[in-house]
Structures are given as C-alpha cells and as structure tokens.
Amino acid sequence: MFVHPVDDELYLRMVEEKDAEELFELTDQSREYLRVWLPWIDRTKSKEDTMLFIKSSQKEFAEFTSMNLVILYKEKMVGVAGFNEMDAENKVVSIGYWLGRDFQGKGIMTRAVRSLIGYALDILQFNRIEIRVADGNTKSQAIPEKLGFKKEGTIREAEWLYDHYVDHFIYGLLADDWQSHVSM
C-alpha cells in the first residue's frame, strides 16, 4: 500500500476498496459544496459508485496513468488529491484535488499539493506539472498561485458543468521553477 507522509498531521494514501463507505460519506456530506465545481458529483449517488471510482483508480495506478490518494488529516479522511494524468513519456503530470467542506481553511490542500509536487519531481522525475482550475474557483486557484505555478493561459469552455460550460485556467510548473521557488 502506498503511503506518503506530508507532516505530523497529514498524509496521503492510495485509495482502497475499504475506503468506499467513508469516502462516499465525505462526498455526500459535502455534495452541495462540491457540486459547484465538480461535474462528477451527481453521478456519485451510492457507495457502489464510489467503489467503481476506487477500482478504476487502482487499475489506472497499475497502468501508471493516474494516482488517486485519500488525504488523511489527524487520521480522518478529508479529501482526495493526486495525479489525474501521468504522461511518463513526456514527463508531465496533472494534479487534481478536492477537500470536504468542513476541512477548508486549515492549509491542508496547500500542504498536500506541495508534497505531491516534491514526489512528482524528486521521486518520479517528472519535469512538468499542470493544474487546471475553473474560472471563478478562487479557492482552488490559490493553491497553484501560492506554490509558484505560472498561469499559462485559458482553455475556453473546457468543461461542461451540469448546465453550462466553464473556462479553465491552466497553471504550469517546471522542475527548474520549483527549485527556484523552494530556494527562496
């Protein structure tokens, strides 16, 4: 089982089948909050739907195409973060994340993403990290902005969100950028 410590309060762990109920409950408790920005919420109606996500995540991890991790804060599951896409040939990885409503404002996601950046660049030897964030999702935009990513542009109408399209901002970070950011 993959476990990645972040600090004394926080660690990331590969999502497992035993997580289905707890992860579904976290999703369900934050449903209205998450629905504003995440298009898959309405398709996650049961523990079984969450189990399908977990099995898909395990398959994609085995294929080295993605890596979904649960975020554990003080031993409680609080969200998911990881690599939505892993392109080993081009050494590019895309980070995605969400946090339960009740766990906002504690710096959890910034710490988790910072740790994922280090893992992607130092351990996996990727060269580029991307984060896509919907225009208007200021809380999610703050993460790459704090961590030294460059806002590289806008992808117009990048995602269908229930009844309308949203544009995505694309943030990029190169290994050299990170070394400069860390040494500051």
Rank of each mutant, 00 (worst) to 15 (best):
F83L: 07
F83K: 07
L99Y: 02
K76I: 00
G79F: 02
F64G: 05
E63Q: 14
A88S: 13
E75Y: 12
M86T: 03
G100A: 02
I71Q: 03
D87K: 08
T65S: 15
Y73S: 04
F103I: 10
G79C: 03
N84V: 08
L69K: 01
E89I: 12
A81I: 06
S66N: 09
E63H: 11
M77Q: 12
G79Q: 03
F83G: 01
F83V: 07
F83Q: 01
Y97E: 00
V93K: 08
V93W: 02
V93T: 12
N84I: 06
D87F: 07
L72H: 10
N90H: 14
E89V: 14
A81V: 09
Y97D: 02
G79E: 02
F103D: 06
V78L: 05
S66D: 07
K91I: 09
M77N: 04
F103E: 07
V92S: 09
E85Q: 14
T65P: 07
E75D: 15
V80N: 09
F103R: 00
G100H: 00
L72E: 15
E75N: 15
V70W: 02
I71A: 06
E63Y: 09
L69P: 06
V80R: 05
Q104V: 11
T65E: 14
V78I: 06
M77F: 05
F103Q: 04
E89H: 13
S66I: 04
I71K: 05
A62Y: 12
I71R: 05
M86G: 06
D102M: 01
L99A: 03
V80F: 04
W98H: 03
G96R: 00
E75L: 08
E89N: 13
Q104K: 10
D102C: 03
W98E: 02
M77G: 05
M67C: 14
M67R: 12
E75S: 14
G79S: 03
R101S: 13
N84S: 08
F83M: 03
V78Y: 05
R101P: 00
L69C: 09
F83T: 05
V78S: 04
G100W: 00
S94E: 15
S66M: 06
N68L: 13
D102P: 01
I71Y: 05
G100T: 00
